[in-house]
Write a protein that binds this DNA or RNA. Structure first.
Lengths: 152, 152
DNA sequence: TGTAATTAGTGGCATGTGCAACTATTTTGA
DNA sequence: TCAAAATAGTTGCACATGCCACTAATTACA
């Protein structure tokens, strides 16, 4: 009925949206939304980061980061502690409650990855990651270069 | 500072968000938002589809589709015409105004694809699309199988 | 040293998105 | 045939996300 060609952009959109749906569904029981998930996972890797560090690592707007962490704090998954040496910034720490569900939260991503990888060889999975990484880096670099922040 | 390993999911998220930002920026001048773009492109390929057909082809929620098309209609880019043979549904047609900017609208996707493909060989680009397609199909299939619509 | 520039974080706004409940129409099958 | 089920589309809600303007704190430099 319709031309069935798909583009990279189209598939990326589909993968993103379906991934978000899956994550949201799986974490609903803990009251964790699809938007908070990524921050929890980053903190599992390295606890005590500032919001700025999280934003720039995840390439997510700092406003979005602030809102997600505020929510996580309200639900008792993180604590924010003002840094003594720079009172503008926080250190964000996971609480006991967050550590308790670590395996479950990380498992969501693992499971989703398995769903996506069905029928792909190890080599193909490696390649997929490599190519996505190249394209992602291109996107990130382009974004930085076209950043309209006034420069000196 | 942080473990720099990234996962497929993470890169997909980055690619999606940056892509949306790029598209939004490029189409702003025409008053077309990042959410409408995908429908215009589908209609350039095949004009006169119903909202249902667009939703199911693009794998986008029918509510989202309705809102996007409503906006496009308000801005004069599409017309919706009730089907005589089934008064529940529309046929969505592009207007002259939409056809006039076809190359420009399609060019946005083309340009973004070029940005992403920088440094990739032809073969790598082909592979990237192929692997994304496999993963995307897995995601779509999983989603259908887990659809909670009550069945007979 | 004191003012200007930079930086971390917040809050408001606009938009996109999925879900669920709803209406109107069409199809199915007892 | 006609009541029940299915289907196309709409609307309200919740949430995620980016942008922008803002505040408070820190850093740079004339």
């Amino acid at each position: 009925m319709i031309d069935q060609r798909h583009t990279i952009t189209r598939w990326v959109s589909l993968l993103y949206r379906y991934g978000q749906m899956y994550i949201g569904e799986r974490l609903k029981a803990h009251g964790i939304g699809k938007g908070q998930h990524i921050f929890l996972n980053a903190l599992y890797k390295e606890d005590g980061l500032s919001q700025e560090e999280l934003s720039s690592y995840l390439k997510i707007d700092k406003g979005t980061t602030a809102k997600a962490l505020k929510k996580l704090e309200a639900q008792g998954y993180v604590l924010r502690q003002v840094r003594e040496e720079d009172k503008r910034s926080y250190r964000v720490f996971l609480t006991e409650k967050a550590w308790r569900i670590k395996d479950e939260v990380r498992g969501v991503l693992t499971d989703w990855r398995h769903i996506l990888s069905d029928g792909l060889t190890e080599e193909e999975q490696r390649l997929a990651l490599e190519l996505l990484e190249k394209m992602g880096s291109n996107a990130a670099r382009f974004n930085e270069e076209n950043d309209k922040t006034p420069k000196a």
